[in-house]
Design a protein around this nucleic acid. Structure first.
Length: 436
RNA sequence: GUGGAUGUAGCUCAACUGGUUAGAGCACCAGAUUGUGGUUCUGGGGGUUGGGGGUUCAAGUCCCCUCAUCCACCCCA
């Protein structure tokens, strides 16, 4: 019989990998809860319309779609935001503001796999709705960075690249570029840092702008700090963008107040592909910029209307488990050791197997992680295995000790042995004491 | 969807210009070791050399196709 492999670009979670996934998810959860976000989730399968409404029909080629027996067109969710919008709009007037929600969800995208991108993955979403001010943006970005700090990552490891769609729009407007051409400019700007500067310049030239406008655009787009941009735009005689610069400066100030100032880098090349972003947008990268973005997000103040709800300002991000996992592996920051069995009982004769079970059952009932060897004897091997796998106590069940109502307990780290009663109580107390 | 690279045991890799039955280390299982340790020693299981076709007396090796993986592009919610 031929073996059936896992589905292309999807992972089998052997225990080692599964522990990593759980470590990531519990960190996300802990950080979210600590920052006052509430958990939510939705079905893993949604109506196809939910996704095409937000992203257009082209999205279908990137989805796992299915038709159910009632001829309903469905799709496995490729992201959480449409579901979020549904949940929010269903109870929009009843939810107290601000709405701070998080989820850690499994999703699928039918894409070509490559490093950092698979067809099934987990994504942490943080969303804050009902607050139009950049205080909310700062909060969301800060929590994203908290999520990375939880693993020991710091400003030396990752950077938060920040930009604003409103700022870009204001600059292009000031340059006299009509709104319908903004998307084309964004598409080029998005390449910044990904292609050589000369190529970028060439792409801007191909946009068909007149020479004066092009020169001003290039002057503005080549800035690598917000201050530099402010000077360059003023120098080019542009007006009407100042409020957006001020907003970003205030946002950066809030991030500093939240202790995240060292991560922030202004990057006019951060555009984000999605059309629905409206204000500040950001991506978090490893400092070496070897991997794709660890996290991306921004403000999407129009989405609730698009999804049939009342207008409501919103800001959020998504962080995937794949790139983060690669970074943690690269930096050696995985924390979880296997959960070792603390105590292992070994029956010294077949007649003692049931007794070992009883003892272990009472230890488990007492909250201790305990296990037993499933056959009697073979002490040399049992001890060897126990030592290798991190067992801390081995309990010998049987022999003369058993006949006198006791079991012999060996602490593997010291080799010290003691005699305790067979009901497990004394053993629990002993282990609890040494565990501290 | 486009282009490039790579495919040998669970993992890391050998096998000179084509030449006997494809090997080693690690891992796994067992024994030395029926009441006491991590070392050591011995043995064992595990391969359609990704798959198919072709050239040849002979293919892991050369050719073609295909599949998979990785990298880059497109896209990136």
């Amino acid at each position: 019989m031929k073996k059936i492999p896992p589905v292309k670009y999807m992972r089998d979670f052997y225990p080692e990998l599964m522990r990593q996934r759980l470590e990531i998810e519990s960190a996300w959860r802990a950080v979210s809860e600590r920052a006052g976000f509430e958990p939510w989730d939705a079905p893993i399968v949604e109506h196809l319309d939910l996704f095409t409404r937000k992203s257009g029909e082209e999205i279908v080629t990137q989805l796992y779609t299915l038709t159910d027996r009632g001829d309903r067109e469905l799709a496995i969710r490729p992201e959480m935001t449409p579901s979020l919008a549904r949940l929010i709009t269903q109870r929009q007037s009843a939810l107290p503001r601000p709405i701070k929600w998080y989820c850690s969800a499994r999703m699928c995208r039918y894409e070509r796999g490559q490093r950092g991108r698979l067809r099934e993955f987990w994504q942490w979403n943080i969303d804050l709705l009902g607050v139009a001010d950049v205080t909310a943006d700062a909060e969301v970005m800060s929590v994203a960075l908290d999520g990375l700090e939880e693993f020991g990552l710091g400003p030396a490891d990752v950077a938060l690249r920040l930009n604003s769609r409103d700022l870009l729009a204001a600059l292009l407007g000031a340059l006299g570029i009509p709104e319908e051409h903004h998307a084309a400019v964004y598409a080029v700007t998005d390449k910044r840092g990904k292609v050589p500067d000369e190529t970028l310049t060439k792409l801007y030239e191909e946009l068909g702008l007149d020479k004066a406008t092009l020169e001003k655009l290039l002057a503005v787009m080549s800035c690598s700090t917000l201050e530099e941009l402010d000077r360059a735009a003023r120098g080019a005689g542009l007006v009407g963008f100042e409020a957006e610069v001020e907003k970003l400066q205030r946002l950066i100030g809030y991030l500093e107040a939240l202790g995240k100032g060292d991560y922030v880098v202004f990057d006019i090349g951060i555009v984000r592909g999605l059309a629905y972003y409206t204000g500040p947008v950001f991506e978090i990268f490893d400092r070496n910029a070897e991997l794709r973005a660890i996290c991306g997000g921004g403000r999407y103040d129009r989405l609730m209307e698009t999804m049939g709800g009342q207008p409501m300002p919103a800001v959020g991000f998504g962080m995937g488990d794949v790139v983060l996992g690669e970074l943690l592996t690269e930096k050696g920051l995985w924390g979880t050791a296997p959960a070792n069995v603390v105590a292992q009982a070994v029956p010294l004769a077949d007649e003692r197997i049931a007794d070992a079970m009883r003892l272990v059952a009472s230890l488990r009932a007492g909250g201790m992680m305990a296990d037993y060897v499933m056959k009697s004897g073979g002490l040399g091997k049992v001890l060897k295995r126990a030592g290798e796998s991190g067992v801390r106590w081995v309990i010998f069940v049987g022999g003369d000790e058993w006949d006198s109502g006791q079991v012999r307990v060996k602490e593997l780290a010291t080799g010290e042995e003691r005699l305790v009663g067979t009901d497990g109580k004394e053993l629990l107390a002993l282990i609890a004491k040494t565990a501290l």
